[in-house]
Design a protein around this nucleic acid. Sequence first.
DNA 1: CGATTTGTTGACTCTAATCAAGCGTAGTGG
DNA 2: CCACTACGCTTGATTAGAGTCAACAAATCG
Lengths: 204, 204
Amino acid sequence: MPQMLFGSPELAGIPVAYDRNAEIYGEGELADYVYKVVRGAVRTYKVLNDGRRQINAFYLPGDIFGLEIGEDYTWSAEAIVGSDIVTVKRSLVLSIAERDGEVARQLWSVTAGELDGARSHSLLLIKSAQERVAAFLLEMSQRLADANLVELPMGRQDIADYLGLTIETVSRTLTQLASNETIELLASRSIALRNRSVLSRLNG
Amino acid sequence: MPQMLFGSPELAGIPVAYDRNAEIYGEGELADYVYKVVRGAVRTYKVLNDGRRQINAFYLPGDIFGLEIGEDYTWSAEAIVGSDIVTVKRSLVLSIAERDGEVARQLWSVTAGELDGARSHSLLLIKSAQERVAAFLLEMSQRLADANLVELPMGRQDIADYLGLTIETVSRTLTQLASNETIELLASRSIALRNRSVLSRLNG
DNA sequence: CGATTTGTTGACTCTAATCAAGCGTAGTGG
DNA sequence: CCACTACGCTTGATTAGAGTCAACAAATCG
């Protein structure tokens, strides 16, 4: 239960509201705070020197992000839509962890969770466009509500930069899955999963 | 200093020798041990249902691997060449961490190091073949000896499966970098870096 | 020394990127 | 309320880069 990190009275913070596209922190800045999404969605990303952007992860309500073991943030973070986010001082968490083994274990656990996510992401990036999009839809379905109706907080460009594809390829792949009856495009950000077994098969 | 995990007298183990291609553990097995490479090299990998293999990471002398927060190993591990590897019981490390905050922090630090590696790996996988190979050579140079002569422990297939390319593309890209004078192929596993600035530029 | 594995090179194919146009929806101002 | 604009998304035509299939060369091993 990594959420407990933010659950103790000692660490209860007041949510702060961020506008759509507002920067939460930038790569290289001092990593003084740890964050938890209450409402909305967050992307962490890097921009390569030639302008390509890679999105590392999406954070949804309940998710913790921005926990660094080093001094600085290694990625930048932005709100994808209007979001409420709770903050705690990293130094405070670290000092509690020093005397409380349970909190120390939770810090480790948050990092281990990120590691799992990063490794799954790498596995994604060696697959075909269809497989990547299928995996993305299944991941989002599971994380949002585990229902067949997926209401995406992010646009096509964010999806493309997360999957290592272009916006055109993401769009085409979705239309193709829709013509299969595998999914249904109710609106660009509202997608119904009509045939999970096909998606799962694509997912490997 | 994550090495200290294995440095305490309590955790001093006797190195075990593994043959080339010997399995160290398999995905899904009980994660009872944590490992440290003394001599040789190790790959961790997964095989997808269609037979494609992804190599997650290479471990070289001094590196710790196989530390899981969950019950099972999530990847398989094999020796790339004949290797000596020290082992400690995970339960032992965990029980020490419970009373020793410094050891707890080291566990966290090992996982955080893996996280950095996994994220860099993801960044790699969105790049072109030239960029991936250049990044690979620079990474290996730095990790092996930080010299211009890189003696790779792994073959082309391992490199390909790590970079998400085919063996042919890796081979062609190396020949191309050699015809540039960027590198020199002394033997298939012995590569001299002749122009690091070109490689770094490719690396982004 | 022959046999087998590993690596290189060539010809061709195919997937996703690029370049370019058009559509649809939401928001703005007359 | 309706044009006008802006943005996000889709679709089409073409290109580029890596994959595939195949042959061969080189290194390694028994």
